[in-house]
Design a binder for these strands. Structure first.
Lengths: 191, 191, 191, 191
DNA sequence: GATGAATGAGGTTTCATTCAT
DNA sequence: CATGAATGAAACCTCATTCAT
């Protein structure tokens, strides 16, 4: 494994555990087993490391989400799969998700649209678009009935986001929360 | 206005705008119009300022939420009121909410149950308890039908949390999101 | 002697001896007998220390030059006094002069008119103006004869500048250079 | 153009623009279109690059100065030619001259007689010797009258040095300064 | 001859906190 | 009560140089 990979992996872990601001570049280097200066050979600065982690995991999330949904037949099944996927993904990739949750607020201060900020928003939009398509499919195949699909997709996105956040924060084992949310949605979207 | 109040108000604004770690105590002092040393006369340390802001606004949120719900008749109306309340509160007290969203992740690193962490969790529990009572009321008065009320309350809490977070992050004007969410819930809880 | 003064004095010595870039702030602090952080309490940054030294000594030079010249009767005597003054001043305040000579080139890179750059140019203009007045006086009292006084003043300024620079660089004991230059000027300006 | 030449040319430009200390070897390499390591294949270290630039341009200056003077008949014409030459040379080779002006002060700190320092002093001595020979010639051919020619040559050297420095620093277009200086010298040296 | 990844010493600056007044 | 000068640990980052390829 190359040094650059080692740095990214270590940084991912530390950023997730302690947050971006509270992780020292010296610690990343030490734990990654490289010299301090090596960090700045491979990345412009500390922010640059974050940026790379960010972009990589954002794309991965979307890709897997799409693949999961593609495997479902009815629209309703797709929505349910999306909720289940989120449950599993945030369990298996809690570090990446944590970094997102941590970085979110940090981006607020920059009124200027930073690349990270734009990237985050584009992912949100993407998720909403995916959910909407499933809703539309559900209406066509008769498994779903709801008002404006765009609006409904945004509600679902909020719910998913909220569940993920709470799961990671409270660290309770909460697959039951996802199950309950699925029931909730099934009732709300039932024809 | 006393000096201590000036410090708290200024710190609230700055923590909301730039986050806890990125706000220097010297800047708080300067913007509050007091000497740097004065901060440490009134508070044990930087964390102490945050702690005070924290406790104050957490209690205020719960109190107002309870009052709002108490003014509603049916269980369903109470749930709707809770959603509306959240919309208005996060609009009018965005600074306090932002601080919560920012501080949340920072508390994760301390496995040891810090006071802030416990406080946050207790608020979540409180909100869930309030929502559950409304659900129970709704079942009694026939305006709501749902499975386990504890579980449903947790779902509602996640949804509310997600909406708030997204609203503050995207800064889109999204009262429509709350409206759509209300519709969504009405369908899910309808008898 | 206050700490700020100690810092300025130490920095003056070190900047003169080793140059601005090659003097570490940590060394200034140590030699001045203060903590490293104290430097940045009293000055915005390293450049800020230089700026203060700069402004202080520039004004002092001009003031003393004016006083010296004011004590002379004829225009020719004033010019001779200016040369003599320069000799003595650069002997007694070699540190300040050295800093100027060192900083000069550093300012070239900033096309943008930095405060230091403007300050340096204003001093040059001031010296030229002073010399010109003496030349005018000399023409009036019959001790000097020359073409355009503005142009001649600029030549004299160049000569003075060159002598100073060479004296400080070669570190030869060169009062004779000033004496010879005075002779040279006397012949060039004689009626 | 070989890689070594590219390095020297790029370094010359950058040292002139930003100074020796403020030019990073990595930047030289990048701008010269070679790998960073290549610098240290062709030169022992950063200082070595400077040394080469230095030696090359110092010799060139002297050689051309000698040639120019050789083309003049009378001693007075030779002095005038020297001034004119300086004007033109510092216009056409401002980069090399700038490097000299920048490096001069840096050499002061090394009490130990560094090669650069010795080289600079030897050039000064050479220029003085050349001027002296012209003065002697002028006295012989009756176009010049002055005191000790060694001393007078040193004064002329100072003047030339001062003019060059001021021209490069103020970046004013100042051929008139050289013209005025020539007049000044003509009067000082006239029989 | 040439490369570029890797180094680590050293640089400047920030900042929460203390303490004498 | 309140101040602000002073601290020093720790942070991020730069950069000349080396060396295996």
């Amino acid at each position: 494994m190359g040094r650059k990979t080692a740095i990214i992996d270590t940084a991912t872990r530390l950023f997730a555990e302690k947050g971006f601001a509270d992780t020292a570049t010296a610690e990343i280097a030490e734990k990654a087993g490289v010299a301090h200066g090596t960090l700045f050979y491979h990345f412009k600065n500390k922010q640059g490391i974050l940026r790379e982690i960010f972009t990589r995991s954002g794309s991965a999330y979307l890709e897997e989400l799409r693949k999961t949904i593609a495997g479902q037949k009815t629209g309703m099944e797709q929505i349910e799969a999306a909720l289940r996927f989120n449950e599993e993904y945030s369990r298996d990739h809690s570090q990446q998700i944590l970094i997102f949750l941590r970085i979110f607020p940090d981006q607020l201060k920059e009124e200027s649209h930073s690349p990270e900020r734009q990237f985050i928003e584009s992912i949100q939009q993407e998720v909403i678009a995916i959910l909407r398509k499933s809703l539309d499919a559900g209406i066509s195949d008769g498994t779903i009935e709801c008002g404006d699909t765009e609006e409904t997709a945004r509600v679902l996105n909020s719910l998913i986001f909220g569940i993920t956040h709470i799961k990671l924060m409270t660290r309770e084992n909460t697959p039951s929360l996802t199950r309950s949310a699925t029931d909730f949605c099934r009732r709300a979207l039932a024809p």
